[in-house]
């Protein structure tokens, strides 16, 4: 028994079981409206899960349309922002003297609230395209990019500069060039740090895309045009359509969780060898 409790299998089970159990308890309390009496709220404002599920079922096409409008700028912003962030970190690691200070400056972007960034990029993108949808996508992607760039550059810079002790001395003793040191030592050393950055960036990218939609130009009011998940959440809440609002919130959560799971799988594949060492 003691052996079993210490075994890897047991740890795996408990690490999955506890969150699932917690989720099930919340779900049951929510569905049976006990949660409502604890929170002192009504089903008008917090619809039960079965109600939310039925609204999702009724509007699946519309929800998917809005999901697409939010997902595209999220992924573009995440990819471009992370790539730029890494590039900034590489440049900073080459010119270490002022690089560290530069990275600190970039990290300031992380502190600027989305609500302040979104209107700025909205105005910036006014002339990008005559199509208001494209314009909005560009503005959203820029907001996401800005925030992802900051977290990537900070982490990647650490990965490129905080090397194992004496490793640079060793490379020197091999008389390796700066380029070789970079490719063989710094670059591999930064890989886990990239994933640390992405673990922060992925949720931030979804949230910033959702919130920036509040402030970004769009075309709305037609049954066939999708202004995005964030916009729809705000719109439906202000119209007291809470069951509809929660259906958009559920889809937004799903987007965030899916992206995170994809990242986790990616990470476990990429870092597999490293863990074995």
């Amino acid at each position: 028994m003691r052996h079993f409790l210490k075994s890897r299998k047991c740890r795996m089970i408990s690490s999955v079981m506890y969150p699932v159990l917690f989720g099930v308890i919340i779900f049951v309390l929510w569905e049976t409206q006990i949660l409502h009496s604890i929170m002192n709220t009504s089903t008008d404002v917090l619809p039960v899960p079965s109600k939310i599920a039925s609204v999702i079922g009724e509007n699946i096409t519309k929800l998917m349309g809005n999901l697409w409008i939010t997902t595209v700028p999220t992924l573009i912003g995440l990819a471009v922002g992370s790539a730029l962030g890494y590039a900034v970190a590489v440049i900073a690691s080459i010119f270490t003297k002022w690089g560290g200070g530069g990275i600190t400056l970039v990290s300031c972007f992380n502190a600027v609230p989305i609500v302040a960034l979104a209107p700025i990029f909205n105005n910036l993108c006014k002339h990008v395209s005559t199509d208001i949808g494209t314009r909005g996508m560009a503005a959203k992607a820029l907001v996401v990019m800005m925030l992802c760039m900051a977290s990537m550059s900070i982490n990647a810079f650490r990965g490129l500069t905080e090397l194992p002790p004496f490793s640079t001395d060793m490379m020197k003793s091999y008389a390796s060039s700066k380029r070789v040191t970079f490719v063989k030592l710094r670059l591999p050393n930064s890989v886990p740090y990239i994933f640390t950055a992405l673990r922060v960036s992925v949720p931030i990218s979804v949230i910033s895309a959702l919130v920036s939609e509040y402030f970004i130009d769009t075309r709305e009011g037609s049954a066939t045009f999708c202004p995005g998940l964030g916009r729809m959440i705000r719109d439906t809440i202000l119209k007291c359509q809470y069951s509809a609002a929660w259906s958009y919130i559920a889809i937004a959560c799903l987007l965030g969780i899916t992206l995170f799971v994809v990242l986790m799988i990616f990470e476990s594949v990429m870092l597999k060898n490293r863990q074995k060492q």
């Binding site: 409008i69 066939t224 045009f225 990429m270």
Partner: peptide
């Protein structure tokens, strides 16, 4: 590893492509 990554990326692409049909048409 490279194969696994490639497979993942194709899966992601296919999933996103399935949403295209639902994107906002302004008819």
């Amino acid at each position: 590893n490279a194969k696994k990554v490639l497979a993942l990326m194709t899966a992601a692409l296919m999933a996103s492509a399935s949403f295209v049909g639902c994107s906002g048409d302004t008819s």
